[in-house]
Amino acid sequence: MFRGLVAGQYVPRRSFVHGLDPRTKILASLALITVIFLVGDFPGYGVLAALVIASIAASWLPILAVLRGLRPILFLVVLTFLLQVFLGGHDDGTVLWGGGPFVVTREGVREGAFVAVRLLILVTSTSLLTLTTSPMDLTEGLERLLRPFRRVGVPAHELAMMMTIALRFVPTLIDETEKIMKAQMARGAELQSGNLFQRARAMIPILVPLFVSAFRRADELALAMEARCYRGGEGRTRMRQLRFGAGDLFAAFTVTAVGALAVWWGRVS
């Protein structure tokens, strides 16, 4: 039942994109998201799509892994497309097909395709970040990027430590949930039948023990961390060092240039 979590998960490879500094990849993703919303016309998306496809090629990812990441949003893409086509309100456009209350216009199809392509590029480019960056690298990159904002009260180290621990305990808690579910089912709990309300109620005997155990784990973990001299981020060093190299410079330059080109080419005329 937890298969869904696997989509968009890190796929280890030794490619150019995998080898980039996580900070470069995070900033590039943020830049791309901004650019996607600045682009107003198809030629811009052509440029962006070319960049995303080139990046996938340079990351040696199995194309299936990328497509699997898109599956959860496929429904959303189709739905927004249909909504735009049928209810987009382009009544004065060139009519392609008219049947009863619904009118399909050239402008409506165009608008629908535009939104669909925007969504696809958005999700592909962000999932490229998580597909090519290990969670530990991602956490480390975020901590380093947020560090300058510590002075204005952003708890950079604490956030990173919370992410690290969360990542560490997700599989453990999933195992535990399955164990509790089996235990409750063995006592006759009905988890898979009944209406929505009944099924929600059936979750209570699973959530209560899960929470109790999670708090106990947190207590023990805190003790173990203190026993290993943990005292917050102050004066802490890291074994893993990030290096901003020539490849990162190249990637940053490419993304900036292509992004600018996309915005310029995709401006609404």
Binding site: P135, M136, I165, T172, L221, T237, M239, R240
Partner: peptide
């Protein structure tokens, strides 16, 4: 054994203690 490992990679976990002491990388 589950409640004393902090990170999701073995060697990073081993590094946790010395990192807390501020040992050079």
């Amino acid at each position: 054994p589950d409640n004393q490992l902090v990170t999701s990679i073995v060697e990073e976990d081993v590094a946790f203690g010395p990192e807390n002491l501020g040992v050079p990388p």
